[in-house]
Simulated assay, not measured.
Amino acid sequence: MPKARKKYYEAIPVGQLKVDTNLDAQRMFQPKWAKKLESIWDPEVLLPAIVSRRADGDFLLDGQHSTRVALDKEGMDFERDCLVFEGLTRQQEAKLFLAANRDRRAVKPYENFAVAVTAGEAEAVQINEAVRSCGLHVSGGTSKEGISAIQALKVVHVMREVQDGLLAKTLTTVLGAWGHDPTSWDGMMLRAVAIVINKNWDTINLSALSLTLKQEPVGKWKDAAIRDTVSGGGSQSRSIPLANNIAYEYTVAFGEKHGPAYGLPKRKPKKATATAA
């Protein structure tokens, strides 16, 4: 007769937890994901792994990557809380894997950000403070005062030391160009403006930069940059030709008064532009 199915919690040394590479329910190990988990490692918030206890050992159904990180960071004797199942068939193991990895709603970027602010994580708190200092707020949807381009905010945040205020200067410049226009809170545009300010930190005139941007709506700036982007480029790569176009137009309009703005090397030349720093 098949063994009766049991379920209970148990703390198990990570050195004892195994991976069955022949099990259909088990994903292949992904080093990049493990490295990401290692960079934010905190044993106090490690959630339980899901384990199938077989006659030949304890096998992970969920938690392979975090268990590997725990092993590397804490050693073989580090005890991890586990939800342990006994008496499972291979089909039941596969169903549990799907329940743990497929059958749950993905957490939206704003939800993660809001929780990170509540948890007091430094990056989220600093971004939130910079955005609010401009009379704006991070939100789940773009509006006149709400910015949903959270990844772009993070990129700008780490582009220069926080005390220098690059993010606040970027948002203030965009506000000066288009006011509280929801279309201006575009991730590609925010990254591009930040690149121009960052590369010309000691010489750029933000009021003049706002006037430069104001010449065209966000959509036209983006269309021109997309034409200059190698096929397949995402919004982050497109922000580079967009930054070059902004730097060029700034130099044409205000270069004699405020000095030239320097961009990054273009992928394919379109017209003469300021040389790279």
Rank of each mutant, 00 (worst) to 15 (best):
residue 196 V to L: 08
residue 196 V to R: 02
residue 198 N to Y: 09
residue 198 N to P: 04
residue 198 N to M: 01
residue 198 N to H: 14
residue 198 N to K: 01
residue 199 K to M: 05
residue 199 K to P: 00
residue 200 N to G: 01
residue 200 N to F: 00
residue 200 N to S: 11
residue 200 N to Q: 02
residue 200 N to C: 11
residue 201 W to L: 09
residue 201 W to T: 05
residue 201 W to Q: 09
residue 202 D to C: 01
residue 202 D to M: 06
residue 203 T to H: 14
residue 205 N to K: 07
residue 206 L to R: 11
residue 206 L to Y: 15
residue 207 S to A: 08
residue 207 S to R: 09
residue 207 S to K: 11
residue 208 A to E: 15
residue 208 A to Y: 15
residue 208 A to M: 11
residue 209 L to A: 13
residue 209 L to V: 13
residue 210 S to L: 02
residue 210 S to H: 10
residue 211 L to A: 12
residue 211 L to S: 14
residue 212 T to K: 00
residue 212 T to S: 02
residue 213 L to S: 10
residue 214 K to S: 07
residue 214 K to Y: 14
residue 215 Q to H: 15
residue 215 Q to R: 15
residue 215 Q to W: 11
residue 215 Q to V: 13
residue 216 E to P: 03
residue 216 E to A: 03
residue 216 E to W: 13
residue 217 P to H: 12
residue 219 G to P: 07
residue 219 G to Y: 12
residue 220 K to F: 07
residue 220 K to H: 12
residue 220 K to S: 04
residue 221 W to R: 01
residue 221 W to Y: 09
residue 221 W to K: 09
residue 226 I to F: 10
residue 226 I to Q: 12
residue 227 R to I: 03
residue 227 R to M: 01
residue 228 D to H: 11
residue 228 D to F: 01
residue 230 V to K: 01
residue 230 V to L: 02
residue 230 V to C: 00
residue 231 S to M: 02
residue 231 S to N: 00
residue 232 G to W: 14
residue 233 G to H: 12
residue 233 G to E: 08
residue 234 G to R: 11
residue 234 G to F: 13
residue 234 G to A: 02
residue 234 G to V: 06
residue 235 S to L: 06
residue 235 S to Q: 01
residue 235 S to R: 10
residue 235 S to M: 04
residue 236 Q to T: 06
residue 236 Q to M: 05
residue 237 S to H: 09
residue 238 R to C: 09
residue 238 R to V: 04
residue 238 R to L: 08
residue 239 S to F: 13
residue 239 S to M: 05
residue 240 I to M: 13
residue 240 I to A: 00
residue 241 P to Q: 01
residue 241 P to L: 06
residue 241 P to V: 04
residue 241 P to D: 03
residue 242 L to S: 09
residue 242 L to C: 10
residue 242 L to I: 07
residue 243 A to E: 02
residue 243 A to Q: 00
residue 244 N to A: 07
residue 246 I to N: 06
residue 246 I to E: 13
residue 247 A to V: 09
residue 248 Y to D: 06
residue 248 Y to P: 13
residue 248 Y to A: 00
residue 248 Y to L: 03
residue 249 E to P: 09
residue 249 E to L: 04
residue 250 Y to K: 03
residue 251 T to A: 10
residue 251 T to F: 13
residue 252 V to N: 08
residue 253 A to F: 15
residue 253 A to D: 15
residue 254 F to E: 10
residue 254 F to W: 15
residue 254 F to N: 08
